Simulated scan of single mutants.
Amino acid sequence: MNVCIFEDNKHLRESLQLLLETTEGFDCVGAFANCNQLVERLEEIDCDICLMDIQMPGISGIDATKIIKEHFPQIHVLIQTVFSDDDSIFRAICAGASGYILKSSDPLQYIEALKDAESGGAPMSPTIARRMLQLFKLNFLPFSQIEYNLTDKEKMVLQQLTLGKSYKMIADELTVSIETVKTHMKNIYTKLHVHSSTEAVAKAIQEKLV
């Protein structure tokens, strides 16, 4: 997995770069202190996912996410931050972020979150998942109920996803393989007419599907 880092804290940036370079299956293809010349930089490298700081001088991580999804829709963006306020969560999701992780997460959590985001999941720190759940409950009224014909298994997978569980955690919880979880997620995307896990979670909460 090719990962590009955007982080203005030099120590953290270098630590994350070292983590990626010493973890099998990962390659750090870029590490930058800001998002200046963002499009040009990404055009020059083969990137699967960006690990994006939310607050940087110049272009913010949220604005950078919008730019990335506009020019490189295939690139996933995992937001990392010390902030867990509702506004930042909402803006990051609306910008197209695939996940949201706190900088207090340990190295293993970073690696698992990157894997999950790259495979189509919506990794979130438990604190973030709880805040997002509260955010949608407080700010959205349920739409008229539509029959999406979700199976019981698909509903169980979707429910676990709204709790911020990774594909691996969902597989362990439901005693199935990760590939089975991915298959359920593909069916969920089709039935809910969504294109990402964050969209699926938002719709599930908004329409009280789980």
Rank of each mutant, 00 (worst) to 15 (best):
K208M: 12
F143R: 13
M1S: 10
F83M: 12
S84P: 04
S98L: 01
M56W: 00
I146D: 07
L138G: 15
T23L: 10
V29W: 09
L38T: 06
F72V: 13
V201T: 02
T198A: 13
H76N: 14
L19H: 09
K115M: 03
K168Q: 13
H195W: 01
T127G: 14
L135D: 06
S177F: 11
F83C: 07
L174G: 04
M132W: 06
F136K: 07
K137A: 15
V194K: 05
I111T: 10
L20G: 15
H11L: 13
S60W: 05
D86A: 09
H11F: 12
R131W: 12
D8I: 00
A202P: 03
T162R: 11
S197M: 11
K66T: 07
E179I: 12
V210A: 13
L108K: 00
M185G: 01
F32N: 01
K155W: 09
H195A: 00
N187L: 07
A204M: 03
E44S: 15
D172Q: 14
N149H: 13
D27K: 05
M169Y: 02
Q37L: 08
L38R: 10
E179S: 15
D152N: 07
H195F: 06
E21V: 00
Y189F: 14
A129I: 14
G58M: 01
V181S: 07
Y110H: 07
E118D: 10
S196C: 05
